[in-house]
Computed example of a mutant assay.
Amino acid sequence: MNSRKKLTTASTTAVLAAAAVIAVIRAQAGAAEATPPVVTQTVEGMNAQIKLGTYPAKILQNNAFTVTLTDQDGLPVVDSKLDVVLSMPSMLCGDAAFDLKEVSPGVYEGEMIPIMTGIWEATVTAELDGSSTTFTRKVKAER
């Protein structure tokens, strides 16, 4: 009877652990799905508004990607060099890098092409006057 009780306890623990893992996965997926097409972040006094033209992004297609940079006073950050790396942290696939071009004061545009469905992470690095600031956002991609 004692071994039966241990088996029941072990089974219950395994079921609870599996339920916890499933809950975490669902919460992460739900959080990524809830990411809006426009995300605003402030890092080291620089504000970035990161906007996707289509959301969720479409795989194997050009998707507009716009970053608007302002300083702590709300003035446009001009002449910055912006690089973006698109990666999929949950997969062992390669990264896709692309540049953004300044189209008006503080507004930088480019196109991203996710190669598969899922949750991607876009890391935007803004270089200005010898220093760099990094912003990140989740991007959901689908067919």
Rank of each mutant, 00 (worst) to 15 (best):
L69M: 05
Q61G: 00
L69W: 01
K58E: 10
N63T: 00
L60W: 06
G74F: 13
D79L: 03
K51Q: 15
D73Y: 12
V78Y: 02
K58M: 09
Q49N: 09
A48L: 03
D79V: 12
V67L: 04
I50D: 04
I50Q: 05
P56R: 08
I59A: 09
N63R: 05
D73F: 06
I50P: 01
P76T: 12
N63F: 07
V78F: 01
A64F: 03
D73P: 00
Q61H: 13
Q61T: 11
K58N: 06
L69V: 01
T70V: 07
L69K: 02
L69S: 04
A48Y: 05
K51F: 00
G53I: 10
Q61W: 11
T70D: 11
F65I: 02
T66A: 04
I59W: 09
A48M: 02
M46I: 08
T70W: 09
A64M: 04
A57G: 08
V67G: 03
N62G: 06
L75V: 03
Q72L: 10
T54K: 11
P56D: 06
I59Y: 09
K58F: 01
L52N: 15
K58Y: 02
L60P: 00
T68K: 13
D73N: 15
D73Q: 15
A64K: 08
N47Q: 13
A57H: 08
Q72R: 14
G53T: 10
V67Q: 03
T70A: 14
A48I: 02
T54F: 05
I50S: 04
D71L: 08
F65Y: 10
G74H: 10
K58A: 12
T66R: 05
L75F: 10
D79C: 00
V78D: 10
L60C: 04
V67I: 06
N63C: 07
T66E: 13
N63H: 04
V78T: 15
D73V: 00
Q72Y: 04
T66K: 02
T54R: 10
T68I: 02
A57C: 11
A57K: 09
L75W: 12
T54I: 13
T66I: 03
T66S: 02
T70Q: 13
L69E: 03
D73L: 06
K51I: 04
T54C: 03
K58S: 11
V67P: 00
Q61P: 00
N47D: 07
F65N: 07
A57L: 12
A48S: 09
P56F: 10
A48D: 07
V78K: 15
I59L: 11
L69G: 01
T68M: 03
G74E: 10
N47W: 00
I50F: 01
T68S: 13
A64V: 04
L52Q: 13
A64L: 06
A64T: 06
G74V: 06
T68V: 04
Y55I: 02
M46R: 11
K51T: 15
L60D: 15
D79R: 14
G53A: 10
D79A: 12
Q61E: 13
I59E: 14
D71S: 08
V78M: 10
D79K: 12
K51G: 07
K58L: 08
P76Q: 08
V77F: 03
I59C: 07
K58P: 05
D73W: 04
D71K: 08
P56I: 08
K58H: 07
I59S: 12
T66W: 01
D73R: 09
I59H: 05
L60E: 15
P56Q: 06
A57D: 11
